[in-house]
C-alpha cells in the first residue's frame, strides 16, 4: 500500500462519482460543477502518470477557464431552473448510443493493448520516467511539439485562429454607417 495507490483510488472515485453525478444532476450549475470535479480528477490522473505539464494545463484551461465561462453563460442566461427536456435534434439518442459504443470499443482496445504490452515486458513507464528526468517533462513536450508534431500543432493553431476570427465577425457590433448601408440595400431589394 503506497501513496500512489491511495491517490489513484481518490482520483478514480472522484472522476467516476463526479461523472455519474453530472449525468443525473437536474440543475445546470450543479452539472457544470460536477464537470469541474471530473476535470480536476483527470488532472490528478495526469499527475500520477508524471505528466506534470499536461496536468497543469488541464486545470488552467479546462477547469480554470472553459468551465468558468460555462458557469458565466449559465448565470448570465439564468438557466438555473430545470433544463428543458425537448430534444431539438431528431435521432440524437440513437446517434449518441452508436458513438458511445464506438468510443467504448476504442477505449477497451487501448486498454487491452496496454495490458498485453505490460505483460510482454515492454516497460513504457521506465521510458516515460527517463524522459521526465532528462531533459524534464516541459522540455520533452516542447521538443516533441516543435519538431516531430510541428505540422499538427500549427494546423490546430490555425483552426483556433479561424474560430476566433469567425466569432469576432459574427458577434461584432455594426457601426452606424454599416447599418445604414445595409438597411438601404435591403430597401432597394424590396423595391426591386
Amino acid at each position: 500500500m503506497n501513496l500512489e495507490v491511495i491517490l489513484f483510488g481518490v482520483m478514480f472515485v472522484m472522476a467516476l462519482g463526479c461523472s455519474i453525478a453530472m449525468l443525473f444532476a437536474p440543475n445546470a450549475v450543479h452539472v457544470a460543477l460536477f464537470l469541474v470535479g471530473t476535470q480536476i480528477a483527470l488532472a490528478l490522473a495526469f499527475l500520477l502518470q508524471g505528466a506534470f505539464f499536461v496536468a497543469a494545463i488541464q486545470i488552467i484551461v479546462y477547469a480554470g477557464a472553459i468551465m468558468v465561462l460555462f458557469l458565466f453563460v449559465i448565470m448570465l442566461l439564468g438557466i438555473d431552473l430545470k433544463e428543458s427536456l425537448v430534444e431539438p435534434l431528431t435521432g440524437q439518442r440513437g446517434l449518441a448510443l452508436v458513438l458511445g459504443a464506438v468510443l467504448a470499443i476504442g477505449l477497451l482496445f487501448v486498454a487491452i493493448q496496454g495490458a498485453s504490452l505490460a505483460a510482454g515486458g515492454a516497460d513504457g513507464t521506465a521510458a516515460l520516467t527517463e524522459l521526465n528526468q532528462d531533459p524534464g517533462n516541459v522540455q520533452a513536450i516542447a521538443r516533441a511539439l516543435f519538431s516531430r508534431y510541428l505540422l499538427p500543432f500549427e494546423v490546430t493553431s490555425i483552426l483556433l485562429v479561424v474560430a476566433i476570427v469567425g466569432v469576432m465577425v459574427l458577434a461584432r457590433r455594426l457601426s452606424a454607417v454599416e447599418t445604414d448601408s445595409r438597411e438601404r440595400a435591403a430597401m432597394n431589394e424590396e423595391a426591386a
Binding site: F53, A55, A56
Partner: peptide, 9 residues
C-alpha cells in the same frame, strides 16, 4: 518542475 503553472492553476 511546473511551479509557475501550478501557481497560475
Amino acid at each position: 518542475n511546473i511551479g509557475l503553472l501550478y501557481f497560475l492553476a
